[in-house]
Design a protein around this nucleic acid. Sequence first.
DNA 1: AAGTTAGGTGAATAATTATTCACCAAACAA
DNA 2: TTGTTTGGTGAATAATTATTCACCTAACTT
Lengths: 190, 190
Amino acid sequence: MKPKDESKIDEIFAATLELVKEHGLSGITVNMIAKKAGFATGTVYIYFENKEQLIVKLFEKCFYAYAKDYFQGFDAAAPFKVAFHTIWMNMLRISVEHFSELIFIEQCFHSPFISDETRASSKEILVPWRNLLDRGKSERLIKQVDTIWIMAYVRGVIREMVKFIKYNHVEMTPEFVNTMFDMCWDGIKD
Amino acid sequence: MKPKDESKIDEIFAATLELVKEHGLSGITVNMIAKKAGFATGTVYIYFENKEQLIVKLFEKCFYAYAKDYFQGFDAAAPFKVAFHTIWMNMLRISVEHFSELIFIEQCFHSPFISDETRASSKEILVPWRNLLDRGKSERLIKQVDTIWIMAYVRGVIREMVKFIKYNHVEMTPEFVNTMFDMCWDGIKD
DNA sequence: AAGTTAGGTGAATAATTATTCACCAAACAA
DNA sequence: TTGTTTGGTGAATAATTATTCACCTAACTT
């Protein structure tokens, strides 16, 4: 028998992300995905039951892959600002490198494809981030503001920065990054 | 002859916004819109040529109505921080009150409905905001950072705050608002 | 090498959704 | 009051899109 070519899944995923970035979730068809990935429509149905499953699986993959990398090189024993900087930089870099994933996830959050449970469970991955910020608060290095607000603040700054970089084709120079980090840091420091 | 009931346009718009907030741009049909607005499918086609035109018109309406209100009560002669606060508060309030518009606009930006020109022209409305920030820089009250970065920063903070409020059904207490304003301000002040 | 199994294809079919239209009703003009 | 014009309806139709399937081929087994 002929074995499944598992790499095709990745090709389907890549094609989908690219198309959603260009046309939005509402602008894509299974045909477009297959054509972009370079094979026949029917092939998509060998690897996925239907379009919905494809979207859901891609969402899960993106979400978990994404958040996992946030903690690359993260040392919980490091001084707070160092650790904060590590994760902040990871978040920025990953969001830029995986911009189409970011757009895809954003679009999925308001779509019939993603269930409330999936939405809710997606928070758990960020526990180490939350813990770090709690530590920063207890060390009186950052403001005594509900941690979840701080997370929203940081997320907002990074997200909008990344969109700015992408839509305006801006180089992500160290100067730019340092400036934005300082702004973000100054906003939360005690 | 029977006159057109122009208020129906608003009802169609309201229904569309509500549905897009719930199901995303990819999850709505003309039938759903008509049913939600409380009349027959065909009626939509009396007021709009087709679905695309409906979306485009709604986008334009949202976008302009939105940005116009940013400058309510804005006095260009006021001290910088006062003026900044006025607009910041307007942005927050409007984004909360018109959350479904915010989501709709966000979804439209990556969709086949909105053209690049529309996207580009949408920037012009914010000229007074940009001017104010330029003034803040020349008065050395805020950081010497490209104004467009500051705009992205403020937009990001507000946007993510609003999502946080909406998704977590948080009361927008004065305490909450003041805290977030301080964080935002501390990030940009010189 | 021959047989078998599952992948790959893309036209055919099914399902969904946009759009039209024959008919009815409300508002206005005369 | 009657006629005329356009709004409103929702079932019928058209268009689009998801999904299937009969047929092919590649890869593995014996």
